[in-house]
Design a protein around this nucleic acid. Structure first.
Length: 491
RNA sequence: CGGGGUGUAGCGCAGCCCGGUUAGCGCACCUGGUUUGGGACCAGGGGGUCGCAGGUUCGAAUCCUGCCACCCCGACCA
């Protein structure tokens, strides 16, 4: 295992890439644009998955699974949708290989050309709505509240571990409703679920809002999102919830008979979060010593490192450690006792810090004599020596404190890096000197939005849900504006 | 697809300009010993089609030509 990380403040991208590798989270695969998520990284993703999945179940959703392949004709049925995704689709054209005649290996068998090409799903609206068509006849069949955990493929030009890869893991919820209001409520409910997860599990504050027309999901009527601020001052869209109106129902002819026996188009929503959340989690809290994980998502919450010179000492320590481990496990705390004799204690300290383990306990001969244990927390890197009595309570409290503390730290950071700009010059200066979110008036036109993007690389992240109406002048055009929207440079 | 860069041991690199012993260094790995409260030390050892294919030459990691791969910057983006 390699030593330290580059400084976060010097080269954020390099720091991020090295951290992802050294904390054993993921690496680029030899396959173009794809990522290998390593066991430790995946165990964090599993923690996220199960917490999110529980929230879905608690709001009445169930899981299902739909095909990986989308016939080309499906994708093209919703005009905006196909236009939005056409440029980044992987396409299956053949179903067989054969041995090359010159013996150079295998080649695609030209005889085995598919009548209709299959698209590897970039998202599943089209497959799912073509299925819902058969599922829905009456208002009694509604609502359908289904989610799937799946992989999708988007042929991105440039990739970045977790933040943008050609293939990624996600969940996509697809619901169908009898009324517009019900679908809108669902859209907002799922946005709240995402915000709740981000803030209470990931300890990452988010801004909830609605996207402008140009940033909207292709095929949606409205796209809502949660936006988080990373430590380098760039924004990251961390989850989206779309109100689809009747667009997909219309495209796939999904109708139901209402109570009056009249035929109506179904209303839809879709919503998703992806392994991008791993990137958000990493960038929200980590430091120059490595990953910092919120206790609620840490696969290992507490690690016990023994310090010993002999086998006798180790077995004496083991007795204490295993008793403590059992005690903590009864409180649903995941504890690892690392009694390997192949690495020194100092090595282990650095290693678990790199991996973001929230609490480290060290037990050595000194502690055996005094009935103590050294407790070190990852977020503040403070160490204290505590009596073994009541240590379990202390650990439980400290884990809660860490969860709260890293949230507060991220919130303070966001507060400090959220600015208000009243002129275009101020706006540009803020983006260049400080970064972060910049609240500014906008005239509501796509032209202005586009110009600002071209000139500054900043985009409107969202119109926040807690939008404060207030007269003002657009920083770019000087035309009247109804309130401030959230600008930032983004990933 | 445009502009730049890099391919040498598992990883990170030096050597190349100016061709010439057996291709070298750090980390990692293996063996032995001493260590262990913040990434230990000493000694010994193993591991290489120098990205690929041609060419020039008595001789190529080094020069020339072509190809391939990857990285960074743009366009795209959960």
């Amino acid at each position: 295992m390699a030593k330290g990380l580059p400084k976060r403040s010097e080269d954020y991208s390099l720091w991020y890439n090295e951290l992802v590798k050294k904390a054993d989270l993921a690496e680029h695969s030899p396959v173009r644009g794809c990522m290998v998520i390593k066991p430790y990284g995946f165990s964090i993703w599993e923690k996220m998955q199960s917490a999110i999945d529980k929230m879905f179940k608690d709001t009445g959703h169930t899981n299902a699974y739909f095909p990986l392949f989308v016939p080309k004709s499906y994708l093209s049925r919703e005009a905006d949708h196909v236009e939005g995704f056409a440029k980044e689709c992987a396409v299956v054209t053949h179903y067989r290989l054969k041995n090359a005649e010159d013996g150079s290996g295998v080649v695609v068998d030209p005889e085995a050309k598919l009548e209709e090409e299959l698209i590897v799903r970039p998202t599943s609206e089209t497959v799912i709505w073509s299925t819902y068509r058969n599922w829905i006849q009456s208002y009694r069949d509604l609502p359908i509240l289904v989610n799937q955990w799946a992989n999708v493929v988007r042929w991105e030009m440039r990739t970045r571990l977790f933040l943008r890869t050609a293939e990624f893991l996600w969940q996509e919820g697809h619901t169908a409703h009898a009324t517009e209001q019900e679908a809108k409520d669902e859209t907002m409910q799922m946005l709240r679920v995402y915000a709740d997860f981000a803030e209470n599990f990931m300890a990452m504050p988010v801004i909830q809002g609605v996207k402008t027309e140009s940033e909207r999901f292709p095929g949606a009527v409205d796209t809502y999102c949660i936006e988080a601020l990373m430590q380098d001052g760039k924004a990251l869209q961390s989850g989206t919830s779309h109100f689809l109106g009747q667009n997909f129902a219309r495209a796939f002819d999904v109708k139901f008979a209402n109570k009056e026996g009249k035929e109506e188009l179904v209303w839809g929503t879709s919503w998703g979060v992806s392994t991008r959340l791993m990137g958000a989690l990493i960038m929200a809290h980590s430091d120059d010593n490595g990953l910092v994980l919120p206790p609620k998502l840490a696969p290992i919450q507490v690690v016990i490192v023994p310090i010993f010179k002999s086998e006798e000492q180790l077995s004496a320590i083991r007795e204490v450690a295993e008793r403590l481990q059992a005690k903590l496990k009864s409180h649903d705390i995941s504890v690892k006792f690392d009694d390997r004799d192949t690495n020194s204690p100092g090595w282990k300290f650095a290693e678990y810090e790199m991996k973001g383990v929230p609490l480290r306990l060290a037990i050595g001969p000194r502690d055996l004599e005094n009935g103590t244990v050294e407790v070190a927390r990852r977020d503040t890197r403070e160490k204290e020596t505590k009596n073994l009595e009541n240590i379990a309570d202390h650990i439980l409290t400290t884990l809660d404190n860490i969860q709260a503390n890293i949230y507060q730290k991220a919130l303070d950071f966001r507060t400090q890096n959220t600015s208000v700009a009243d002129s275009y010059d101020d706006f540009k200066a803020l983006l260049d000197d400080k970064g972060g979110f910049v609240m500014a008036h906008w005239d509501g036109t796509a032209e202005t939005e586009e110009k600002i993007k071209e000139e500054t690389k900043a985009t409107i992240r969202c119109i926040p849900l807690d939008f404060q109406p207030g007269e003002g002048k657009c920083i770019y055009s000087g035309k009247p504006s109804q309130g401030r929207v959230v600008f930032a440079r983004a990933y």
